[in-house]
Structure formats: C-alpha cells, structure tokens
Computed example of a mutant assay.
Amino acid sequence: MYNHEIHTPIATKSFLTMGIIALVAVLGYMILRFSPIEKMPPLFAVLCISALYLGIAECILWCVQIFNALDKDMILLCLFPLNWVLIAIRTIKDVVHQQTFKKENVSHKYKHLVILLNNTSNWPWIAFLAAIPLLGILVAVLILFGQEPDSFIKAWTETADWNLSQKVAPQNIYRDEHYLCTVAAGGHPTIVKPMRTGKRHGHRVIVNRQLCIANAFEQLLEERTPNFHRFVRTLYDKTGYPIAKHIQSPYIADAIYFIMKPLEWIFLFFLYMFDAKPENRIAVQYPHSVPPTLNSAFYQQK
C-alpha cells in the first residue's frame, strides 16, 4: 500500500458473506414494513425479525470496528449503520404493537407453540433465538460459493489497523507524488520492473532501475556542476509536481515510465561518459542504510 492508504475494515474475501447478510436484513425490513402483519404467517414474520437482528449485529460490529473518537471521518461513517439500527428497532416495535394476539381455536398437542407464536409480543425474543439458525442456513449456502464457515467472524478479524483486527500490516510504501520517476516506479510490476525497496526522505519506496539511474544522474550533476544542478532542480520542482499529482492510476504510471525511457537512456549515457564506476553509483541509490562514499571500501573493491 502507498502513502496514507489504509486497509479495508472488512476482509475482502468475506465481502460476499457480509453483502448477503445485509441483503437478507434489507429484505426482512421491506417485508415487515410494507406487508400486512395480520396476513403474514407467524413463523415467517419471526424469521424477518431475525434477519433484522443480523443486520443490527453487522452494523454494531461495523461501528465497533471503525470507531475512533479522534477521527471525525470515522465517526461520520458510523451514522448510517446507527441509523439502520434505530430503524430496525422501530420496525420491530411497530410490528409488535400492530397486533398483540391472534386468536385461533387449537386443540392439538402443539397448541402451546401455536399460542406462543400467535402472540406478537413474543416475536422479538423468539426471533432473537431464531437468528442463530438463520445465520447457520446462510453460512451453509455461502459455503457452496467458496466462503468459509467462520467468514462472518474473519470478516472483522482478518484485517489490519482497525479495532477488531488481528493482523499486523507491513509498513506502507511511500510514493513521492512530486516526482515523475518515483510515481512511475509504482506502475504494474511487469512493466516498471521493481527491483527492491529503498529509503527516500525517511520512507520506504519502490525502486526500479529507471529511478536509480535518474537519481544517480542528478547526483553526478550535483557533484560536477552544482550551479547548473540547482537550476535544473528548481525547474523540475516547478514542473514535475503539477504533472505528477495527477498520476493516480498504475496505468498512467506505466505511461510515464515509457515517456521517461528516452531520458533514462540519456542519463545512462552521461553516467557512462563521466563516471568511472557508473553501475556502482546506480546500485547505491535509495538504500535502506547510509550509502557508501566514493572513497569507501565498497567502491575500492569494485
């Protein structure tokens, strides 16, 4: 990941599970909201309320996952799920108050169960118990589509940087959006051919040969003609940033990589023309540690 990007609060491999549960919850709400309760089978109504409970659980877990009192954006992202929780509770309350008891003459051995289901005031707690088997049915169906049995749990724990996360993400790679070569190094690997990571301004960056050649040429220019280097550096800083800040896609980065190719060949020509050990200079660009000096043993042994 680059710069200030953050990981998703829900593990991507569990998107299907979370999406289906959300869809079932919305369907349950639509049925309870727009269908006459007196014409609805009691057990079916109970399952609709169970679907609402699953939606409530998903919303609460979302809020727990992302809530950060110091980040106003995270607080705003909690508003919609909290609103859903309130709507679901209001819907369940309206269903219970619409009709408290359905009278039926029953005489068979299951009459107590029938009486229990016909009393709508019992539906909320019955639906709460039924939410677990409903979730089990959904999970069983989702297994056929490649989801794991515990994907509802892993959706929150198989993440990084969030409250319920159990994974530790690697440090983000820094892409300096001021400079074309640095941005171009973030293109598709098969195109830009990254070699390793390195350090730039204290951040990890992706390094490819084009970037190393460009930086080595600038270093050579600074050593041999410091005044001209300052002029070139100032000019590049003024023109490079307005272009580089619009490079937001790997495909555009690939295009910049190809556009910079002729300059790369020119830089390489000057390095081989005026530097006794050009490949050594190229190799030590963007290191993880302090690069060796020109008089160090690294250069002498080469």
Rank of each mutant, 00 (worst) to 15 (best):
K199H: 08
F274D: 00
P287M: 15
V284W: 12
Y286V: 02
A283D: 13
Q248S: 12
M273A: 10
R200W: 14
L211M: 15
A216R: 11
I256D: 05
P287D: 08
Q285D: 13
V232F: 04
L263V: 04
A244I: 06
F228E: 05
F258E: 05
A244L: 07
L271R: 00
Q248K: 14
P262Q: 09
N280T: 15
N227C: 12
T239Y: 09
M260R: 12
F274T: 00
Q285K: 13
R200Y: 15
Q248C: 09
C212N: 14
M195L: 14
N280C: 15
A216F: 11
A216Q: 07
M273V: 01
K238Q: 08
N227W: 15
I252G: 04
M195G: 02
I213H: 01
H201I: 05
R200P: 01
K193Y: 02
P262V: 03
I252N: 07
S249P: 01
E279Y: 08
P287E: 14
P250Y: 00
I247E: 05
P226F: 02
D254Y: 05
F274Q: 03
P278Y: 03
V205K: 10
D237T: 01
P226E: 08
H201L: 11
P250I: 00
E218F: 04
L220M: 03
M273H: 01
I243S: 07
F228H: 03
R233G: 01
A214C: 14
R230C: 01
Q210P: 03
V207S: 03
D237V: 00
K245I: 13
R204M: 12
I213K: 13
R200A: 11
N208T: 04
E279R: 12
K238N: 12
F231A: 01
F258H: 13
T239V: 08
F217K: 07
F258S: 09
I259K: 07
Y236W: 13
L263Q: 10
K193I: 03
F258M: 11
F267Q: 07
P262S: 06
P287H: 08
M195I: 11
I259A: 10
T225L: 12
T239W: 11
A276Y: 03
P278W: 06
D254P: 04
I256F: 15
Y272E: 10
T225I: 09
G198R: 09
I266Q: 04
N208S: 06
G240N: 15
S289Q: 14
F228A: 13
Q248P: 04
A253Y: 02
K277V: 10
C212E: 12
I282W: 08
R204C: 09
R196D: 02
H201T: 02
N227T: 10
A283S: 14
Y251M: 10
K261P: 00
F231L: 05
A255Q: 02
F270D: 02
F274V: 01
Y241F: 14
A253P: 06
K261F: 11
D237N: 14
F267N: 15
K245M: 12
